[in-house]
Design a protein around this nucleic acid. Structure first.
Lengths: 337, 337
DNA sequence: TTGTACGCGTTATCAA
DNA sequence: TTGATAACGCGTACAA
């Protein structure tokens, strides 16, 4: 059991650099602290020795300091097979990087148990960002106990000091209906997603409310699973049912794209001439040539920049009251309605 | 400046729990250490007080221990607009979660500077996983100096103690060509991606080698950017050029899907009757009804399970020689060739 | 089974 | 400007 074996597999520490450079350990620390008082030549020498030995201050140990932050931010996100989730996650991660924060990601919200979230809370996170809808709100209690700021995106959580960003889903559904009516469509169906998500419930409510206001009833309200294939099959079932309809509002883009494919290829319908189809979210694919989906934009850039703003403000003022920001949806008119 | 203000915004520590429960601090530590010797009743009381105060052991401080691990694994990944990257990232993150490791994600490999990677190396990571091609290999030097295991996926890095998983791109391209030839296609073009990536170079080389072996020449070799829109435009340009061709091998699925859309909608060509198109990767979209893309599978599940295996073995044996595992590609025959 | 004491690698404080 | 020393929160060897 040579002592060297252990030494070799360990990370180089400030102490070792100090010995090698013939300076005190504090001097090494100062060499890596901008603005710290230290002789220029000595600093140069220390940095050189560090470079040579491969020394870098250990961020974990630094974060242990009373004033220190870990700079770790956990993100709990839904299944990345949903393009909306993966696109917004990408933007969010970039934003965090720009703030000097490191994203620790828990993917697959539906399968993520409370226990797993508790596990990641073992780290002294700068914040926890909850994306998407299906996680229990008891998480907020745990975060509060651990003094970890909680930011929720995609639904509203009415809890003390919790910040929320959410799209106005009802208004968005209303926009979709209005645009369909404007095109002369009045026999409308709603193709919903997972019913346990607030996004689905709100979009459906918005759809029904807008129709009611126009004195109309939905031809049909059906539900699928927010996936392309789900949309493909669901619209197939709908058309096979024999109902007269001239427009479908889908609760997300993936299902809308699947629905378009089913209408065109399985039922030889022209979209939008025979059937209008509108989605929700405005994922990148919606704008691809040939897909060209009319949809309601659930603005990712605004959402992300709000999350980042809330994060920085929360870090500066941990005790300020929680904010709720609603992002206004906009209708993106393309070729499917 | 009340001392309480500071106390309130801090995380509860083992010391405080010990005081509240009237036990020693080590007892608290033991209560959270499975198998540690501790009176049952005392343990119960400690856990109860912890629950009440909202105490959880700080994983950072625990990771500081000499034998301790941080359980943090950094993943450097390419731009998530590429579906292959986002799908494999999702699988990888789930696998890491199952191992009790937490993924710290750096997204957008093309824009990720060496400096940013150095920054994340400030953490005592259990490992760094490099996905995709465009990052400089000097990263390996830094990892070696810091004794952080490096696992590379998507290209081969011939460096001591670095583990690599990679698809056999040449063989994959060969499969695609073989299948096209089998369908009677002989006037083939290559639609490549970003030329600075080894994946593109290898797939192109495989394409040309397979053609040469059949005594044929490529009709055309062009390059785009691995995106749907890039593929759409590139095939448009190709067809506008007036070359006679009956098959296109695309370096990834996104471009292949864009190419199909362009062929069908802009040039009224039937795919596959008039023009065969084959992709690479086998992303989820390739299997969607109506898209139905024939492609070469760059197996994600195998890749991820190899990465995870290499990771665990590397943690057990930090000094074992580096491995290079090539994942065999397979041809997925669907409706576009 | 218990508590004391030390080490982990860092930054912050303090007196020189 | 410097170096010694005290936190930071935790696990654990050691002695009781």
């Amino acid at each position: 059991m040579s002592p060297f074996k252990d030494v070799k597999s360990r990370r180089v520490t400030a102490k070792e650099v100090a010995q090698a450079a013939g300076v005190s350990r504090s001097a090494v620390s100062r060499a890596f602290t901008p603005g710290a008082p230290l002789d220029e030549d000595k600093k140069k020498r220390i940095l050189q020795v560090s470079e040579q030995l491969g020394y870098r201050p250990n961020a974990l140990a630094a974060g242990l300091q009373s004033r220190g932050r870990s700079n770790l931010v956990a993100i709990v996100t839904g299944d990345l097979v949903n393009h909306y989730d993966s696109e917004i996650l990408a933007k969010l991660m970039r934003g965090l990087q720009a703030l000097g924060k490191w994203p620790v990601v828990l993917e697959g919200a539906a399968q993520i148990s409370e226990a797993q979230i508790l596990d990641v809370l073992a780290y002294p996170l700068d914040a926890l960002i909850l994306r998407g809808g299906s996680v229990d709100e008891s998480v907020a209690t745990h975060c509060a106990k651990l003094n970890i700021p909680l930011i929720v995106s995609g639904r509203v959580l009415d809890v003390d000091r919790v910040d929320c960003v959410c799209c106005d889903n009802m208004q968005g559904a209303g926009l979709a209906v209005a645009q369909l009516l404007k095109k002369g469509r009045g026999k409308l169906a709603y193709l919903g997603g997972l019913q346990n998500l607030s996004s689905d419930r709100e979009r459906r409510a918005g759809f029904e409310a807008a129709l009611a206001q126009a004195g109309l009833n939905p031809v049909k309200v059906i539900h699928s699973d927010y996936s392309y294939e789900g949309g493909y099959k669901a619209l197939g079932g709908l058309l096979a049912g024999g109902d007269q309809l001239d427009g479908v509002f889908c609760a997300n883009d993936a299902m809308a794209l699947g629905a378009i494919a089913a209408a065109r290829e399985k039922y030889a319908l022209r979209v939008p001439e025979d059937l209008s189809i509108v989605g929700f979210d405005d994922i990148a694919m919606a704008g691809w040539p040939s897909l060209n989906l009319s949809t309601v934009r659930n603005d990712m850039d605004q959402t992300v920049s709000q999350i980042l703003r809330m994060l920085t403000e929360r870090l500066d003022h941990p005790d300020k009251p929680g904010e709720v920001v609603m992002i206004p949806p906009t209708f993106i008119s393309r070729g499917s309605h």
